[in-house]
Amino acid sequence: MAGWRLESPRVLVVDLDGSKGSAVRAATGSMVAYEGDVSFKNAGMGGGGGLRAALKQRVTGESLNLMEVTGRGTVHFAVGAGYVLVLDLAGDVLKAESEGLLALSDSLRTDVTFTGLQGASSGQGLFTTTVTGHGQVALISLGGPPIALRVSPATPLVVDPDSYIGSVGRLQQSFVTDVSWRNLIGESSGEAFSLRFEGDGVVYIQPEER
């Protein structure tokens, strides 16, 4: 889809042509510059995901503060000098941490899903924001460029929940709470579990631990 490009690895540029299809929803406060006739409006409760999504976000802490960006012009988005990862969704389901979402096409739907049962102190990865539909979505990777890791039935993957930013595909996610993992995590963070992915898909992580 035209209109989305990276001006540098850390700045997302979106061209809006005034049509409904070019409109985006972006993280509140992520606009760093724009030109043209563009309006920024709070997407309201649930980041435009509707009342049900808003309620779930309130309960789960998987809050999503988005603004609707519409009009005709060019808008630059950036957050915390993080690297931007742009993904094309063609009916796939993206699971992502809400704080890592930078922008998404207005045509995409967002919701909150529950991904696990076992105790987690930070909540990272316990509830996740799902993005579905056809369009583009931009995620933020802190500490360096995002890392894409393929998961196949022969190659399961384990990741640090504090480095996890999102995943696409048919993946089963489980929590690993073994003792050895607990020792691997720094004293400062109280994490006691890791995320294990099996199935078929791609997992995205960042080089920095949140």
Binding site: P156, N183, L184, E187, P207, E209
Partner: peptide
């Protein structure tokens, strides 16, 4: 030998 908290992912083979 690894310092704790520095591993971000692993693939067991």
């Amino acid at each position: 030998f690894m310092q704790t908290g520095r591993m971000i992912a692993y693939y067991p083979s």
